[in-house]
Amino acid sequence: MEALATGHLFALTGAVLVGLGLFGFITLRHALRQLLAVNVSGAGVFLMLGGLGRGAATTDPFPQALVITGIVVAVALTAFGAALTLRQAEEDHAAKEDDERGGKT
């Protein structure tokens, strides 16, 4: 029972995180929140992958290598998504100001 608990802790926590992220992605509307929700799901998947390499005495480096690569990719895409969100916010802001100016004249 104890072996089951420690062995499956990573996978179960990971599954919960994936579910939370998915729930967030569906229920939240703002792009930045959706981006964070995807990251929560991503963390869940990385936790599962990382837990796979865990052995009784030794640690299998292969899943860990995959996790490190995956985190690098996820960070790059998150930064890119944040930049896009910022650009979108700036465009919306500019459009709003144009509207207000147009309304006055």
């Binding site: 996978a11 994936v18 992220g21 998915l22 992605f25 792009a31 959706q34 981006l35 995807v38 799901s41 991503g42 998947v45 599962m48 992958l49 796979l52 292969f62 899943p63 995959l66 995956g70 895409l77 890119f80 998504g81 896009l84 969100t85 650009r87 979108q88 465009e91």
Partner: peptide, 28 residues
């Protein structure tokens, strides 16, 4: 269009998560 691109990125990211989840299952 930044709006269309942002929508594309978010849905593509979600797709990637599902794909990666499957890869994790296959690896285990």
């Amino acid at each position: 269009s930044v709006r269309a691109a942002l929508r594309y990125l978010l849905i593509a990211l979600l797709g990637s998560i599902f794909y990666l989840l499957g890869v994790a299952l296959i690896l285990s």
